[in-house]
Amino acid sequence: MNIEIEQIPYCRIAYIRQIGPYGQNNVRTMEKLKTWAKSDHLLDEQSIILGIAHDNPELAAPQNCRYDTCLVITEDYCINENYISEGSIPGGKYAVFKIEHTAEAVQEAWLTIFPELFRQGCQMDETRPILERYQTKLLKDHYCEICVPIH
């Protein structure tokens, strides 16, 4: 598995939080965020959408799992919808895994990235979130990325 090490900068995000079992609910939340972003003309060739799974489904009850679907926004953008929250990603050093943008490939990646990080001598930084990153330019080629914060 190919790993790129990348310094991801701090970014401001607009997000919708989904609480409940991971899977189809995340897809619906993603579609809701994209519909809002399109209506506000925020989706273009430079857009970056992030998915953040806050809870390990092996440790948390499915009904308590939190997933944020995020859009990276500019510092000066004003959010006008009450169902859209605002936050930020602190940035830092990440191990980036480029994978096919399919449900099967994403599920497989979640099973293989941690052993691969260990094999390559990387140590995860648990103070920052793991990011599923969907960049328009990669999505056109049917790829996405999982970005794991490392020390």
Rank of each mutant, 00 (worst) to 15 (best):
C122W: 14
C122A: 09
G92V: 15
Q120P: 10
E100S: 05
L111A: 04
H101R: 02
K98P: 08
Y94S: 07
I113N: 01
L117R: 00
I113F: 15
I99M: 02
E100T: 13
I89S: 14
A105W: 02
V106E: 04
F114P: 02
A103V: 11
E104I: 15
G91K: 12
F118A: 12
H101L: 10
I99S: 03
G121L: 10
Q123N: 11
Y94N: 07
E116T: 14
C122M: 14
I89N: 11
V96T: 15
F118Q: 12
Y94T: 13
G92E: 06
E108V: 10
M124L: 09
D125E: 11
L117K: 10
Q123Y: 11
E100N: 10
L111C: 00
T127N: 08
V106N: 09
V106M: 09
V96H: 09
V96L: 15
W110S: 03
A103T: 08
Q107K: 07
C122V: 08
K98T: 13
G92D: 04
E126S: 09
V96N: 00
E126Q: 03
T112A: 02
E116L: 13
F114L: 08
E116F: 09
A103H: 06
E116G: 01
R119C: 06
E100Y: 13
Q107C: 01
A105T: 01
T112N: 04
E104L: 09
T127C: 05
K98C: 05
E126N: 08
V106P: 05
F114Y: 14
T127I: 11
A103W: 05
V106W: 07
G91H: 14
I113C: 10
T127W: 03
E116Q: 14
T112P: 00
Y94M: 12
E108Q: 08
L111P: 05
Q107I: 05
P115I: 10
E104S: 15
Q120R: 07
H101S: 08
Q120G: 12
I89E: 11
Y94K: 06
Y94F: 15
G92A: 09
E104F: 15
E100K: 14
V96Y: 13
I99A: 00
I113R: 04
I99C: 02
H101T: 01
Q120V: 13
R119G: 11
A95N: 09
A109F: 01
K98Q: 04
V106Y: 12
D125L: 10
V106K: 08
Q123V: 12
T102V: 14
D125G: 13
E100W: 06
T127Q: 05
T127G: 05
R119I: 05
A95V: 14
A105F: 07
R119V: 07
P90Q: 09
D125S: 12
D125C: 14
E108P: 00
C122I: 15
G92R: 06
Q107N: 02
H101F: 11
H101Q: 03
P115W: 00
I113E: 03
P115Q: 03
T127D: 04
A105H: 03
G91I: 07
Y94G: 12
Q120W: 05
H101C: 06
P115R: 05
E104K: 15
G121P: 04
P90Y: 09
Q120N: 14
D125Y: 10
Q107D: 06
E104Q: 07
I99T: 04
G91Q: 13
P90H: 03
I99N: 04
E126M: 08
G92Y: 06
D125W: 15
